[in-house]
Design a protein around this nucleic acid. Sequence first.
DNA 1: ACCTGAACACCGTTCAAGT
DNA 2: ACCTGAACACCGTTCAAGT
Lengths: 205, 205
Amino acid sequence: MASDGTTNQYHHGDLHNALLTAAGALLREQGTGGVSLREVARRAGVSHTAPYRHFSSKAALLAALAQRGFRQLEAAIMTAAERVPHGPEQQLIAAGIAYVRHAVSNPEVIRLMFGETPEATGAVEAGAAGRQVFTALQSIMEAGIQSGVFRQREAGELALVAWTSMHGLAMLVTAGMLPMDTTDPDAVETLVGAVAGNVIYGISR
Amino acid sequence: MASDGTTNQYHHGDLHNALLTAAGALLREQGTGGVSLREVARRAGVSHTAPYRHFSSKAALLAALAQRGFRQLEAAIMTAAERVPHGPEQQLIAAGIAYVRHAVSNPEVIRLMFGETPEATGAVEAGAAGRQVFTALQSIMEAGIQSGVFRQREAGELALVAWTSMHGLAMLVTAGMLPMDTTDPDAVETLVGAVAGNVIYGISR
DNA sequence: ACCTGAACACCGTTCAAGT
DNA sequence: ACCTGAACACCGTTCAAGT
């Protein structure tokens, strides 16, 4: 490309993504309270009103960030489950470990995702992305039911039990409510194993 | 009392509590984002710097609010459990229903309580209050183990399983992540029953 | 279309002062 | 001791303008 023309400034066409990236970094570094639209704009190298061309409000930017978080969480769960072909129990445990581990690695994003009722702008899409996590768990459950490993119930109910305890564990851990070393991957695995073990025991036929 | 003297203004000696009350009302009405120290002061009828005589920062005020929330949650759980003398299973279900119902009635406070890692000022006490909820559940578990209803495990582990799923359910419901009518008390009860049933089935010997 | 700069109505926090 | 008022450095959002 020539040194002139449309690519002159560096925030050529993709300010939308540059803003998301900057906001994500800020969130990770400073927490939810540290994210200001003005600082995000500053980091992206634009004026503090420029973001309004891409997001209708600060809430909309945060909602987009949450939506991206949901997709990543879902991907982490599914990838972990697919990597384990040893039947639904092991898949469920793998998914649980992935869930909690993802939460521990990205506490601020998780907090953002589940922190506000989806009532602000754009939160509709974020809410849908969140429910898709539930759908992902449901697919594991259905496989478990069909193979006869899990009890014959609505897959939704079993998925709810699984989601509920994994989510609760993730939230309590990231909130610092449980006496455990968050930096130790083994500790996470042990904890998930204990909880998942009970869930599976209750679910199995 | 005479119409003069120390009670002249109405915010006599208990500004501390007046601030907490105002902040609580504001939180309930507007959510976490709606709570500003200046508005709290305004409602309490004092200047916007007066709160600093009672709380070192906005974060400290919120931490105090969270601490009060933890105590109320614990009280709700214990009261519900004690009201049911039909053995530990029923007590656990009653506690779970109380937990989720309390969360649904006070979504903003719950969000505040579990929303931020206790790292800000005063959050030490709030964190301790939170862990006391866990202790409350533990006491129910111990009774269950001693009576032979629950499996012989560390009460802490069983309490963790119970807390984890109840908390996860409460958080998902208040986040609007589950397709249910939050205003319907029966729906809450049904949902808790389904989850608690599985937990108990897994826990029982 | 996309971005800017000034402007408005807010914040949290500090500090010198008042009683 | 307890409270006030001015001041500082920030916000989110709007709007008229610039290219």
